[in-house]
Design a protein around this nucleic acid. Structure first.
Lengths: 182, 182
DNA sequence: TAAGCCATGTAATTGGTTACATGATTTT
DNA sequence: AAAATCATGTAACCAATTACATGGCTTA
């Protein structure tokens, strides 16, 4: 089972998405776009090679299921695939967290600007997070539906996304208030 | 001035760090490690080529300032460098924000686990953020010193880091409470 | 009939990291 | 005397993205 190494995160994304019901490569791509894209991305060009890898490793089985004359391969997890996914989820090791935010970067250097220009930067960041909270809010209903059907976790990740942008918004507001007319 | 294109974010990091007082390539590396690393990273291997690029473009001037027999090049911004840095900071365009969090990724797929195992995942994420808040708290005093000397912005970015991990912690706690003994 | 979506795959490029290479100075 | 830190630079590698290539089906 552990020989399944040389699998990377993209492979587990594919495995996970198939388990959530995405049947084709294209369906996985769409599922990524409208769910995890806020905290993880994989591109289409990774998906098909990954599916091939997973199939070779016996973790998924694919079959040809064309729609009309349009070719289409669908996939399902094998028991080994389910096991490996769970094993990965349980694996208790440092959880990588990477943030790459040009807003924070610019803000860090904002001392090079005058007060008004720096405040504009803070405003832009707040605006960005406000919009992000709105975007996430707009898909909350759907995640609540999934939660009602027994899977609480997509909703939970959504709440985390909202919470932490809200955290940024609060700090921006505080700063704007503190430096108001200062 | 705008011919300074084909400069990327790493070049602006270098420019910004020199402005904050980092004089050598090595000093820039250290400054990145103990300040912006929480929301942006550049590796040593990018710094020296970037300095060469910036010098060729007339944005910084370097001179040899060995310490003892140990060689050392120090750099200072030219007026053009200062201008370009400010121009970049002012530039009003969509501000890229990228998050890549394996914790959220695993959590999204946690439906494949039993309740207890899923709660362990939530606990691990909370723990991670708690530790991160502590780490950031430990350097707050220093950032407050910088703020007292007139540069408010490093402290502001620190507060944002704390706020958003606190946001995650709150959601974890809520979830843990909601599912307690469920 | 054109644009857009469904669908799969590959090639070229990029942006970045790790590792290598070297050597002086300071600390333990 | 060894380990850690200061200091600069390059080469090899890697993960991932963008772009390319192809084609059927659906909608405006």
């Amino acid at each position: 089972l552990a020989r399944g190494r040389e699998l990377g995160p993209p492979d587990f994304v594919v495995l996970g998405m198939i388990r959530q019901g995405a049947r084709s490569g294209y369906a996985i791509k769409r599922a990524v776009e409208l769910s995890i894209r806020f905290f993880w991305t994989i591109s289409q060009a990774q998906i098909y090679p990954s599916l091939a890898r997973l199939e070779r490793a016996g973790l998924v089985i694919g079959k040809s299921e064309p729609l009309g004359r349009r070719r289409r391969r669908t996939f399902a997890l094998t028991p080994a695939g389910e096991d490996l996914l769970r094993e990965w989820l349980r694996l208790d090791e440092p959880i990588p967290f990477e943030l790459r935010d040009m807003g924070l970067l610019k803000l860090f250097f904002a001392g090079a600007l005058g007060r008004d220009e720096a405040r504009e930067l803070v405003f832009a960041m707040r605006d960005r997070s406000v919009r992000q909270v709105k975007t996430l809010g707009a898909i909350t209903a759907e995640a609540e539906g999934v939660a009602a059907q027994g899977n609480l976790y997509p909703l939970l990740t959504l709440r985390m996304g909202i919470a932490f942008h809200q955290g940024l918004i609060d700090v921006c507001r505080d700063f704007e208030a503190e430096t108001d007319g200062g």
